[in-house]
Design a binder for these strands. Structure first.
Lengths: 234, 234
DNA sequence: CGGGTAGTTGATAATTTTCAAAGCACGTGG
DNA sequence: CCACGTGCTTTGAAAATTATCAACTACCCG
């Protein structure tokens, strides 16, 4: 199912992989990328940097992600990709992969699905910072990352996982200052919900964390497209 | 170039089009869509609604957009699509279009590019609400919509265009209350930058509007991937 | 004319940022 | 091995931004 497998039939991802140290940029905004990157291992932050020095983290790329695909060929990247941990990637010549995609519709569709997933995540982040306060945003982000890494919700008390993020980076992802992130994390710690230290996240109380993340998307309601007139603001 | 043309060779979009009144939902979150929608005309808001009744507008779909593509087939939509104006769409049976895409790599690639553009816009919105204050957010949004409709930056003083948004919807898109949107729009009006009334936006001072939108993405800098060690926070 | 929506305004409260300073951790070089 | 620099975290106090609450107006449509 994952696109990595499909690509694995085309190139030997493992042996061709490069190891990249934490802190390196795979590419920077403004670069014209001649390669795509298939992430095999590690954490990468995608971010944009404004003239005034402020920085927004747009997403975190995890193993399985494909980076560098652009709306049009030979267009400069609008964001940067920085390794948060040691990372292993396979760098695929853009030209070659473009040809492969054009001749392999199955791969093209997988790529569509992948990008659609990115879009959905971006939309989730939008709702997160647009609708929730600091505490909820942080809880939501920690939960998202846990689920992406572990492929399930946290269930048992005291589960721990590696989270190579600084409080500053959490703030950059959530539209908060690192000072406020710090204070809010303290509250979550005092409330025995999560403990984040040394790039280690301990989920003390999974249910409380889920509750702290705030309201979830409203459950489906019958009847669309049929002129059903709900309160027009909803 | 646009995907609409490619689809136009497959189906007669114009004669098959449906006209949909303002205020109707094309689909709602939770729905499993059996059709894709190709937008021919009008404005559509994509939004998510949370349990507590709060609502985030994720994006505005304009003519040329394709709606309803999901990460996996037969998955419920995570957002709703509401017509802000009278809208003309062509509804394409999902099954049929899926087959077409699988056999037409060119179309698949166009779809990829389209979704990638959506992702980039979502990222732009993220940076907007994550990094800017209310005044900048509003200026940025108005500018984005102007550019999307007119395909260029506003240049002359006093240009006017139709903007079928309420102040409440602007707030839902930007993570602000309608009260605050109202106050901020007044400031922009008093400063003779823009005037928004009756679904009509007058851009009094294009340059000032661009300035009010705040910092732009930092211009490219040489050298990535080469271990160039900038200030590590950037 | 009545009712509902959208826009406006003022006062107050809550959240978040800013500024400033200090402590800690860790790696490097002496 | 220790000193030192740098980056990350913590803390406090004050300021700024934005939300909330409440009321009032204008307007459109039936």
């Amino acid at each position: 199912m994952p696109i990595r497998n499909e690509l694995g039939t085309i190139a030997d991802l493992e042996t061709g992989a490069k190891v990249i140290p934490a802190g390196t940029d795979l590419y920077r905004q403004g670069d014209v990328c001649s390669t795509y990157f298939i992430v095999l291992n590690g954490w990468i932050a995608l971010s944009v940097l404004l003239d005034d020095g402020s920085c927004q983290i747009l997403d975190f790329a995890l193993p399985g992600a494909i980076l560098g695909f652009q709306q049009a060929p030979d267009t400069p990247m609008y964001h940067s990709a920085r390794c948060l941990s040691v990372v292993r990637v396979y760098a695929f010549q853009r030209r070659k992969l473009d040809v492969v995609i054009e001749t392999n519709p199955r791969l093209a569709i997988l790529l569509c699905r992948q990008i659609t997933a990115n879009e959905a995540r971006a939309h989730d982040h939008l709702a997160n910072i647009g609708l929730r306060d600091a505490r909820q945003r942080i809880a939501h982000l920690l939960l998202e990352l846990y689920v992406r890494v572990r492929q399930r919700l946290p269930a048992e008390r005291g589960e721990v996982f590696q989270l190579p993020l600084s409080q500053g980076q959490i703030g950059q992802a959530l539209g908060l200052t690192y000072v406020h992130v710090c204070r809010t994390l303290q509250v979550l710690r005092e409330q025995k919900i999560v403990r984040l230290a040394n790039h280690r996240l301990e989920i003390i109380d999974p249910e409380a964390l889920i509750a702290a993340a705030g309201s979830r998307a409203r459950s489906p309601r019958p009847n669309s497209m049929a002129g059903a007139k709900l309160p027009p603001n909803l």
